[in-house]
């Protein structure tokens, strides 16, 4: 089963290597990973989607927690959270008919056209993994030229979002 982990880490060089190395060495599988700074520039948040059974996930969480640069880790899988991925898809659209069809799909999925070339279009979409998969499947018949997909980012609904601890100084 897939688990979504929200991890606050020190924003330091090498942190990503430490986490990637840990996953490789202990044989865990990362499905996706997204990193960015938080409102505190000293702290980054990683959203890691990892697959494995309960025993594995428990080990993943504990081992991650052991890393000195990991400040706080929350498994938000069972919480109510909003999760989003983003993609760019460059599809073939050789003629006006294809363009029309693609535009319709884009509307249905609430995606956006961000670039139109001579015989290609670039579509941007955000959404949950399932929706992104669906967009990809829908556009595939047109011929996908290029495809870029981010890892998932996620946030727990309501007031209980895992905040990073107040700084002591």
């Amino acid at each position: 089963m897939k688990h979504t982990l929200s991890v606050l880490v020190e924003n330091k060089p090498g942190v990503l290597t430490r986490i990637a190395g840990l996953f490789a060495r202990r044989g865990y599988n990362i499905s996706s990973l997204a990193v960015g700074e938080t409102d505190d520039p000293d702290v980054s948040r990683m959203t890691i989607v990892v697959s494995g059974d309960e025993v594995v996930i428990e080990q993943v969480c504990k081992q991650l927690n052991k890393l000195v640069d990991v400040i706080k880790l929350t498994d938000i899988t069972d919480k109510e959270f909003i999760g989003r991925e983003m993609i760019f898809i460059k599809v073939n659209c050789p003629d006006a008919k294809a363009r029309m069809e693609i535009m319709q799909f884009v509307d249905i999925f609430r995606a956006r056209v961000v670039d139109i070339g001579k015989d290609t279009m670039i579509i941007e979409a955000t959404g949950e993994a399932a929706k992104i998969d669906a967009i990809e499947d829908t556009l595939r018949p047109f011929g996908i030229r290029d495809f870029v997909r981010t890892g998932q980012i996620a946030m727990v609904r309501g007031a209980k979002n895992p905040k990073h601890p107040k700084k002591s100084n």
């Binding site: 000195v68 400040i71 706080k72 601890p165 002591s168």
Partner: peptide, 10 residues
């Protein structure tokens, strides 16, 4: 003078 250790993640 003060070398008190405080590591957020540890």
């Amino acid at each position: 003078d003060d070398l008190t250790v405080n590591i957020k993640g540890y």
